[in-house]
Design a protein around this nucleic acid. Structure first.
Lengths: 142, 142
DNA sequence: CATCAGTGTGGGGAATTGTGGGAGAGTGTG
DNA sequence: CACACTCTCCCACAATTCCCCACACTGATG
C-alpha cells in the first residue's frame, strides 16, 4: 500500500516524477483521472478495471449517474512510467487540477493522488482544525 | 510496552536517535506518521498494518473521512533503524512537528511519540493545570 | 585507576534520483 | 505530397539521499 507525500515540479512538457516509493505500485501501467476535491487519482491498471466494471453497471437513465460516469470516465488517461520514472499528464487533466509548478504526489488506500501544492496544504489545515471523532481514534490506535 | 522519555537532537540530515530502550520495539521496521497535538507517532510494522486496514475501510464518499485518511496516510513513512540506531525523518514530518534542535522521544501504549521539546513541556504543564477527573485517577492508581 | 562495552554524533563515498534536453516517429494541415 | 508541429522515448548530467564507517564520550567493571 502506497503512503507518504512528496513534492515535485511539473516541467513544461507536462511531465511529473512518480516517487520511487510508488513505482512498484504502478509498474504494470496506470490510469490517471479526475479525482475528488480538485486532485487527480492514479489507479494501477488492475484496480481501474475493477472500477470500470462498476461504472458500466450504473443505470444510463439516471442523470447523476451519467454525470458521474462522465466525470471519471471521460477524463481517464492510460499511461506508464518512462525510463526516468515519470508520467506525462494530458493537458485537460493538468488544467482540471491546476497542476503547474510545484505539485504534491500523495499516497492513499488503493490509489495515488496528485495535488496542486496550495490546494493540498489548504486541505491539510482544514483537517487539523477539525480533528477526528475520539471513538474513531481509539479504534485505530487501540 | 515502551515507556520513559528521552531527549535527543536532530542533526542537519534530519536524523534522530531511537532510545536504546525502544529499539527492540521497532526492530522489525516501523512507520512514522503525523500524530495528535503536534507530535509524530511511531508504530511497529505490525501495529501499523492493523491501522491501515481500518483506514482502508473508511468510505470514499464522505469528505471528512477522506481528509482524515489523507492526514494519517499521506504523512506515513516506512523506515528502519540504521547501523547507529537512528531513523531519518522526512522533511514534511519534521516541519509538521517542528522537530529541530532538541526533541523528546516518548514511550506510549502501543506506540512511540516524537515531540518538539518546548511543545512537550508545554503539554506537561497543561496537564498539571487541568488534571484528570478524580474518579479516573482513583480507577487508574487505586 | 585503567580498560572496555555501549552510546551519541558527525562525516564521506557510492548509488540512486531529479531534471532537462534532443532525436526520431507519428500526426495533422496547407 | 510536403511541411511543420507534437508527442514519445531515450540519454546525460547534477543533485540528493542513503548507508556505512570512524571517533568521542559515558558509565560500568576488574
Amino acid at each position: 500500500m502506497p503512503f507518504g507525500e512528496f513534492q515535485y515540479s511539473v516541467d513544461d512538457k507536462g511531465r511529473v516524477i512518480v516517487p520511487p516509493a510508488f513505482r512498484d505500485f504502478v509498474d504494470g501501467g496506470m490510469v490517471v483521472t479526475r479525482g475528488m476535491d480538485g486532485c487527480l487519482f492514479v489507479f494501477p491498471l488492475g484496480a481501474w478495471q475493477h472500477i470500470e466494471a462498476h461504472l458500466t453497471d450504473l443505470p444510463l437513465t439516471d442523470p447523476s449517474s451519467r454525470n458521474f460516469v462522465r466525470f471519471f470516465y471521460s477524463g481517464a488517461a492510460k499511461t506508464k512510467l518512462d525510463s526516468a520514472g515519470r508520467i506525462t499528464l494530458p493537458a485537460p487533466l493538468r488544467k482540471f487540477a491546476a497542476l503547474e509548478g510545484n505539485v504534491m504526489f500523495v499516497g492513499a488506500p488503493n490509489r495515488l493522488e496528485i495535488w496542486n501544492e496550495q490546494r493540498w496544504l489548504a486541505n491539510l489545515e482544514a483537517v487539523q482544525e477539525a480533528p477526528p471523532a475520539p471513538e474513531l481514534l481509539r479504534e485505530l490506535i487501540g
